[in-house]
Nucleic acid binder design. Structure first.
Length: 241
DNA sequence: ACCCATGTTCAGCT
DNA sequence: TAGCTGAACATGGG
């Protein structure tokens, strides 16, 4: 489910619950349910792939990881919710998610969130400078630099900027870095739009593609970087430097 | 039916 | 000791 844009959609869907009281909270999450029972939701926020259900005192932090899902005003049949929030005549269920109760959002720097109006290009460039020996495919997935970027955005942004996923940060000239950051943000918002339309996969240029939509050459699938995450790229358009 | 994947943490090793 | 790697988690779609 996740990647920043999908979490933003979740936030929008949960907006209707602001001001509402959690009448009952349950699930197999290892949290102190008494901290959220009978509490009112004051805001729904996000940072990267993290969702925050803000109460007056505490914050419920949810991360959907790879397999997480949710159901608003409904339940899945054969799976127990990690977190079930009951309201008068409404409910929210989260499945297979990481759930924590935290005290503040201080640890989350909004200027590193690719979907935030606070996003800061210069800060990202400056952080990248301390990752010279890191492959760009890994740097893009670093949530401290690009919170919200996942494997789809990574692959598409690299393709758009014609950068090889295994290039080291040190090998990339400044204009390439600028282009990559620009495309990253721009594509994240395209992702948001396509996801809402239900047309996300129709717009992929590299991710899970067989053929490059620019040169018609073969797209390579390779496990790259420290994280050994899949990169899809066109070896012709995205030449190694 | 099997394989794979929009993610991250952490134990355990060198 | 610090840095790295693979395991672990766990579901659903192709």
């Amino acid at each position: 489910m996740p990647e920043g844009p999908s979490i933003l959609i979740l936030k929008e869907k949960l907006h209707q619950f602001t001001g509402r009281k959690i009448t009952l909270a349950s699930g197999y999450a290892k949290i102190n349910f008494s901290k959220i029972k009978n509490k009112k939701i004051v805001a729904i926020k996000t940072w990267g792939k993290h969702l925050f259900i803000c109460l007056s005192k505490n914050i419920i932090e949810i991360h959907l990881r790879m397999f997480g899902s949710y159901c608003i005003n409904g339940r899945k049949n054969h799976i127990n919710p990690k977190l079930h929030l009951q309201f008068s005549g409404a409910e929210i269920n989260f499945y297979v998610a990481d759930v924590n109760i935290i005290e503040s959002l201080d640890a989350y720097d909004e200027s590193a969130d690719i979907m935030s109006p606070q996003w800061d290009n210069k800060a990202a460039k400056s952080k990248l400078k301390s990752f010279q020996a890191t492959m760009i495919c890994d740097a893009l997935l670093n949530q401290q630099i690009f919170a919200g970027v996942g494997n789809i955005i990574k692959n598409e942004a690299l393709w758009l900027s014609k950068i090889h996923p295994e290039d080291l940060v040190s090998e990339l000239p400044a204009p390439a870095i600028s282009s990559l950051i620009k495309n990253c943000i721009a594509y994240a918002f395209k992702f948001l739009q396509y996801k809402k339309e239900g047309t996300l996969s129709l717009h992929w240029h590299a991710y899970r593609q067989a053929e490059c939509s620019r040169c018609s050459g073969e797209i390579i699938k390779k496990y790259t970087g420290r994280a050994k995450r899949v990169s899809y790229f066109c070896p012709f358009c995205q030449q190694k430097r």
